[in-house]
């Protein structure tokens, strides 16, 4: 991790009609950093991700990525999106394409990479996520966990500077969550910059460099995972964590859970 900021949200406001989804969010992500966004459903975490690559335009404030403002003008936003991988809750693999083509379609159509080079890149990524044998399968033949790993490979094939994960394990069966989190952990260990919306508190605690807690469209608390999970200063953070079964136990009992 360096001090070099790659993604900066400055007082971002996003409204849907009467609903204020983001109410002045400021957050900075540094190169190589893993930041997890936690908080109750509907608190604006996923909206922030969609604003980051302009799938949703912001109403006020601004977002800077790698020194340039993210504007929703079409050509500039495409350059931003090419360098920002995104993984969705519902995977959103393209059902009419094989696993291999799901991964190569970005490089071939957007980066104009040749088919041979794109195939080679895809095969390396499939090996990395442990799905080399599924290259010619269609997404419908894969389990949820496998589909999500393909989705991660699809995003990585663009060789992004930053990865956005929008609740990547929320739609998964419990037994396949681990395989997706391991892939994400590997990426984090390799130094990938990641912004992760998650309800997996163990993952946030073990992998994140920083955790930001959302409530009602605002970041109510931000800090190292140790601080947030063991010593939250804000009452609503403690409420939220206790609802999830975190009762503010000390670090000792937390590490026991990890070993278990």
């Amino acid at each position: 991790m360096t001090d070099d900021p790659i993604l900066i949200f400055e007082s971002v406001v996003k409204r849907y009609g009467d609903l204020t989804a983001l109410d002045g969010v400021s957050l900075t992500l540094r190169r190589g950093e893993v930041v997890c966004l936690i908080g109750p459903s509907g608190s604006g975490k996923s909206t922030l991700l969609r604003c980051a690559n302009a799938l949703d335009p912001v109403d006020e404030g601004r977002i800077r990525f790698d020194g340039h403002e993210v504007k929703s003008t079409e050509s500039s936003v495409r350059l931003v999106r090419q360098r920002m991988g995104m993984v969705f809750q519902n995977f959103e693999l393209f059902p009419h394409l094989t696993v291999l083509r799901n991964i190569t379609i970005g490089p071939t159509t957007v980066l104009k990479l040749g088919h041979a080079a794109a195939d080679e890149r895809a095969k390396k990524l499939l090996a990395k996520v442990g799905l080399s044998d599924k290259a010619l399968s269609y997404p419908s033949a894969l389990s949820g966990g496998q589909q999500q790993r393909v989705a991660i490979a699809r995003a990585l094939a663009m060789e992004p500077a930053l990865m956005l994960f929008d609740e990547p394990t929320s739609a998964l069966d419990p037994e396949t969550i681990g395989e997706v989190l391991s892939v994400m952990k590997t990426l984090a260990d390799e130094g990938m910059t990641m912004l992760v919306v998650t309800h997996e508190m163990d993952f946030a605690r073990r992998v994140a460099d920083r955790v930001a807690v959302f409530d009602k469209g605002r970041v109510i608390e931000e800090g190292a995972p140790q601080e947030i999970f063991t010593n939250a200063r804000v009452a609503r953070t403690r409420d939220f964590l206790s609802h999830l079964g975190w009762h503010g136990e000390g670090a000792a009992s937390v590490s026991k859970r990890e070993e278990a």
Partner: peptide, 19 residues
């Protein structure tokens, strides 16, 4: 979500539609 996934790769609207 399918449109978004394709847009998120940086594809043009025409490519998203056609492919």
């Amino acid at each position: 979500g399918q449109w978004n996934a394709a847009y998120a790769l940086g594809m043009t609207p025409a490519n998203v539609f056609l492919r």
